[in-house]
Simulated assay, not measured.
Amino acid sequence: MFFLYGEKELEINLRNRVFNVIRVLEYEAGARELSGKDYEYAMWIFRNQGTILPSKVLTEGKTVKVIEGPLLDEIGKIIRLDKHKKKAWVEIDFCGQSRIISLSVECLTEV
């Protein structure tokens, strides 16, 4: 799959001039310009120069750093992980005492 990006509308007969095109995306009423979530996804790919890297997988026992929220920059160890609910229970040291905090995995990064 590939997307063409341009400042002007592309020619309708472009499909005939490009080798191995199976079909051209077309919305209802013949619109060919991406919109909504499709546009957002295509622009995300464009901003990343077409490279989609694999996600880092968090697992129990890994050391993580909080990258968002009131615990920003705190470091801890994942004690328990619920991948379906995207929650992690992280052991963090507060003033010499170990505490287990429930956090969203989206605010954590592997150290």
Rank of each mutant, 00 (worst) to 15 (best):
Thr63His: 03
Thr51Gln: 13
Lys8Arg: 12
Gln97Ile: 10
Tyr27Glu: 03
Tyr41Ile: 13
Phe19Gly: 02
Lys56Glu: 14
Asn16Ala: 08
Pro54His: 07
Leu81Trp: 11
Tyr5Ile: 05
Ile45Lys: 05
Pro70Asp: 15
Gln97Asn: 13
Tyr41Leu: 14
Arg32Ile: 02
Leu72Pro: 04
Asn16Pro: 01
Ile12Leu: 11
Ala42Val: 03
Glu9Lys: 03
Arg32Glu: 04
Leu34Gln: 03
Gly96Met: 07
Ile52Leu: 14
Arg15Phe: 05
Phe19Thr: 11
Lys65Cys: 14
Lys65Tyr: 06
Arg17Phe: 09
Asn20Trp: 07
Arg17Leu: 08
Ile52Cys: 10
Val21Gln: 01
Leu10Glu: 00
Pro54Arg: 09
Tyr41Gly: 05
Glu60Gln: 14
Lys86Leu: 08
Val66Thr: 08
Asn13Thr: 15
Cys95Asp: 11
Ala31Gln: 12
Asn48Lys: 12
Val21Ile: 15
Asp93Phe: 04
Lys77Asn: 10
Phe19His: 15
Ile101His: 07
Ile45Met: 12
Glu60Lys: 10
Thr59Cys: 11
Ile79Pro: 05
Val64Asn: 05
Phe19Glu: 15
Ser55Ile: 07
Arg17Asp: 10
Asp82Leu: 14
Glu9Thr: 02
Glu68Phe: 13
Tyr41Asp: 12
Arg47Ile: 04
Leu34Ile: 02
Ile92Phe: 10
Val90Trp: 06
Met43Pro: 02
Ala29Val: 07
Gln49Val: 11
Gly30Val: 02
Val64Tyr: 04
Asp82Pro: 08
